[in-house]
């Protein structure tokens, strides 16, 4: 197995995010349950990082901490050198497609975060992002009239419309069928290459991680730790039948397998 381990971001890129000694435990029935243990992570500006791990390993919890929805039991997250103390419109969290507001139209959803702009500027951005995610003609539709994949694209558009530096995606394609999921991955890469946001993407799907990420942070089962960071050194568009792809994929499979004692 030949996978490059890189603990820090590529040195030529400035560090966007630094998580230092993050630990988290939840209290249930008076007992403290450790969920995350001493997580250290650096993400470079413009980087696409996948957090990969078995379900229940705390990867979504880690993402919620990074986004500022949860406070860690100890440790801190710094973005641009500033400690994260809460959610911020410069960093948008994309939930599974459930996160779109069902009482707003497609236009209303995309414009949701644009309340500080003038009407003309808002309309311009809405039109731009409707086009970018391929929802032309659905501007006046409500989410209940859209398919799962369209709702997911809508949520990504809503996030991009406020021009954030970072996107946090929590298993965004988990509820989609496998064909739509593949298409969505391609679209996300296209958008990422166009806008170069820093992306942290949580998934339990090894293929998804290897197809998308610059680096994959493999997490162990609960309490979650970062077991290994794998550099995916294949240029986009990636040939998912290439020897290097399969090698990296197998390497991660073994990592996760070891964690599970299969």
């Amino acid at each position: 197995m030949e996978s490059t381990v890189a603990i820090t971001a590529t040195p030529t890129v400035e560090t966007k995010l630094r998580a230092e000694h993050i630990s988290m435990s939840f209290t249930r029935d008076g007992e403290s349950m450790p969920v995350l243990e001493d997580i250290n992570l650096e993400v470079g500006n413009g980087e696409f990082l996948c957090l990969l791990g078995p379900s229940g390993c705390g990867k979504s919890t880690l993402l919620s901490i990074i986004a500022g929805f949860l406070s860690p039991t100890s440790g801190e997250v710094k973005i641009d050198g500033e400690i994260v103390r809460g959610p911020d419109p410069r960093r948008i969290f994309v939930f599974q497609e459930r996160g779109v507001f069902p009482w707003l139209t497609v236009e209303g959803n995309i414009g949701f975060g644009l309340f500080k702009l003038t009407r003309a500027e808002r309309d311009r951005r809405i039109a731009h992002y409707i086009k970018m995610v391929g929802l032309e003609g659905f501007g006046k539709s409500y989410p209940s009239e859209l398919s799962g994949g369209m709702k997911q694209r809508l949520e990504v558009a809503r996030a991009l419309a406020v021009n954030p530096d970072m996107l946090f995606l929590d298993e965004p394609f988990g509820a989609l069928d496998s064909i739509t999921r593949l298409i969505m991955r391609g679209e996300l890469l296209r958008i990422w290459e166009a806008e170069r946001k820093t992306i942290i993407f949580v998934t339990h799907d090894i293929d998804e991680a290897v197809q998308l990420a610059d680096r994959v942070a493999v997490m162990s089962a609960r309490p979650g730790r970062i077991q290994e960071i794998v550099n995916i050194d294949i240029p986009h568009p990636r040939d998912i039948n290439s020897a290097r792809y399969l090698e990296l994929r197998t390497g991660i499979f073994n990592q996760i397998g070891l964690a599970h004692h299969l």
Binding site: P87, D88, P89, F93, F95, G99, F101
Partner: peptide, 14 residues
């Protein structure tokens, strides 16, 4: 109210 709606609202800086 699903927590995602409230979190999304907070995320956009309302």
């Amino acid at each position: 109210i699903p927590a995602v709606y409230i979190n999304a609202g907070r995320n956009f800086g309302l």
